[in-house]
């Protein structure tokens, strides 16, 4: 039984693409056949986060328009032979694809993959409607900030209006030190306000920047966010893993000043 999952947020810059790359990598690591689809037409990014930008020949619009076969456009990951990326088109815009075509595309992919992950563009216009059209399930990514949570609430309303199956929350960039001193909303506060089930919380972690620089997702590595992403993937596969918010991995200087402040 394959499943199509859309990763969305409303607001830009909260970590949709990073989350898509890391969940895709994690599910592949756990043995699943995974297709990652970048649906942000005109602003292609998932290829760079995955480190596959040099291998693109065809893209999503080429597949939809019939310029190539699906197999020609799918790029195989560097590390996992069961992980593929369908990149977005950089020189077209969102009107190049419609929701019916996206439903057809995801249906076709279901034959060969266990999980199809759609990285949704920011906003609530056609790009969003395209991305959610073929999805069975949605993951809403937010950060503990007023603007991101407000947009997430709007997105949740739109997903419910479209009868999206399961809608779950990922709270990204949590800083436990700031939550502890009362200068950041806690994961519980965010859950209480958005009133949807939590799938996981990711700490604000310097390793993410390093991983994006290198184009290598960090799921499963010995980093706070790497472990949090792996836990999310295991929960998606039905494992019952309690949700904790690990301390973020930060640089030596900030850890030292943090220590001195506590002392």
């Amino acid at each position: 039984m394959s499943e199509v999952i859309v990763i969305t947020s409303g607001k830009g810059g909260v970590g949709k693409t990073t989350t898509s790359a890391n969940i895709g990598t994690g599910l592949a690591m756990l043995g699943m056949r995974v297709a990652l689809i970048d649906t942000d037409i005109g602003l292609r990014n998932l290829d760079v986060v995955m480190g596959l930008e040099n291998r693109i020949v065809y893209n999503l619009v080429d597949v939809v328009e019939g310029n190539c076969r699906m197999k020609q456009a799918l790029i195989r990951d560097k590390r996992y032979p069961n992980l593929y990326l369908l990149p977005s088109a950089q020189t077209r815009d969102k009107s190049a694809v419609n929701p019916e075509q996206m439903i057809k595309l995801t249906e076709d992919l279901k034959e060969d993959f266990d999980y199809i992950l759609l990285d949704c563009p920011a906003g609530i216009e056609q790009g969003f409607r395209n991305a959610i059209a073929g999805a069975d399930r949605a993951l809403v990514v937010t950060t503990p900030e007023v603007s991101a949570i407000r947009d997430a609430d709007r997105i949740i309303g739109l997903l419910e209006a479209k009868d999206m199956g399961q809608v779950q929350l990922i709270v990204n960039r949590v800083r436990t030190d700031m939550v502890r001193r009362g200068d950041m909303m806690s994961v519980d506060d965010v859950m209480d306000i958005l009133a949807i089930p939590l799938l996981g919380a990711i700490p604000d972690d310097e390793s993410i920047v390093v991983s994006t620089n290198q184009g290598e997702p960090l799921t499963g590595t010995d980093t706070p966010s790497g472990q949090a992403y792996l836990d999310i993937c295991k929960r998606l596969l039905g494992e019952d893993i309690p949700i904790t918010v690990p301390e973020g991995g930060r640089g030596f200087i900030s850890r030292l000043t943090g220590f001195l402040k506590r002392a």
């Binding site: 503990p144 900030e145 007023v146 009362g182 950041m184 909303m185 806690s186 306000i193």
Partner: peptide, 12 residues
């Protein structure tokens, strides 16, 4: 007030 609490009230 702590800013996290301020954010929570504004958001609600």
């Amino acid at each position: 007030n702590r800013s996290g609490e301020v954010a929570r009230k504004r958001l609600k």
